[in-house]
Design a protein around this nucleic acid. Sequence first.
DNA 1: GTCTATATACCGATAGAC
DNA 2: GTCTATCGGTATATAGAC
Lengths: 204, 204
Amino acid sequence: MARAKFSTSSEAVNTIFYEAIPLFAQSGFNGVSMRHVATAVGISIATLYHHFPDKQTLYLRCIEEAFANKAGGLSEVLTKQSSPEEQLKHFIYRFTCLMAEDDNFRRLFQRELLDGDETRLQVLAKDVFQIQFKGITDLAQTLAPQCDSHMMAISMAGLVLFHLETTPIRQFLPGGRAEHNDPEFIAEHVTKLLLNGVMKCGND
Amino acid sequence: MARAKFSTSSEAVNTIFYEAIPLFAQSGFNGVSMRHVATAVGISIATLYHHFPDKQTLYLRCIEEAFANKAGGLSEVLTKQSSPEEQLKHFIYRFTCLMAEDDNFRRLFQRELLDGDETRLQVLAKDVFQIQFKGITDLAQTLAPQCDSHMMAISMAGLVLFHLETTPIRQFLPGGRAEHNDPEFIAEHVTKLLLNGVMKCGND
DNA sequence: GTCTATATACCGATAGAC
DNA sequence: GTCTATCGGTATATAGAC
């Protein structure tokens, strides 16, 4: 019998999450084998199966773990500021930084949009995003009462996320520069665009 | 010897593309086996390998094929209209319809953003998107000369694509309604947002 | 809690006949 | 151009010892 690497089960499980989440975020469900995960953790496949009944369950628990850790940070983003414009500016800046600093979360989310079945997306929407998304629609409602706040909330999040999502290819597209990947630069561009529209975007 | 299903090699190859592209778009490179493709086409694995040397090459040729078919459609989108506002409105509408009607193309693009290595993204940018993207930056330059046209072009495309990308989860988020998935509805929302900004988005 | 060993299935890829 | 048969490797998952 090999010496126990972890003294408690939850210690082992946490280490498995720590190693597996970046792997799944990087290569996706089908791109990561139980062997990969076990090797990364430094345990055998059998031990991995001792902690999780199957690969599907391991993956889902990783998703839950990665998203649960993020829900708290998203809540802080929507604190009240003086004016609606300040609220928007503050939200975009914090949201951009939060998404930029955690590629794992962002990539897992993108992968779920592509591969998640209806049940999984429903759980994700209800249990992880609902409260935060409601906060964004409320902000949109304050800023533009005459507008569809659901569409506006999607637009606000999408502007930020698409800039981050396209980071690896933008350097090869006309006009792409390194500073375009700076969260502060992205946040400033998105805020100006949202506040003024495309025609007056360069003005302050 | 089995009777020949296809009379020419290119006929077989085209049928392989026709079956393989939706499979790769749906499940990704690692989610589709050569067996799956061969079965979908109605040929054996060995026959598939007669037409493509390996799986990697098949996948890359599928990407090229799917994207080549789209490049033409994107060119038409940037025809000159009377005013810059009309140009923008026309571009957003055509771009939205084009992306909405071809899930395969859009999903393959999203997957490449997640999984494509630097070489593949460079080829994609230079050979597929460069000309079209240059057209969008030119439009952005016309609309907002004082603005970073690269950032603005990304924002314009991102607004449309993120609405399409989040279609499967939006129905579970607060305020989500079926008509939010209508390309015309999306195009109208995005156009208004770009032209007026968030504060005046509901006005015409 | 961890291991070795193994069952079973599928993977990508090839050989060689027709 | 297409097939059957097969190779070597890896996948998920389990059995059973310690």
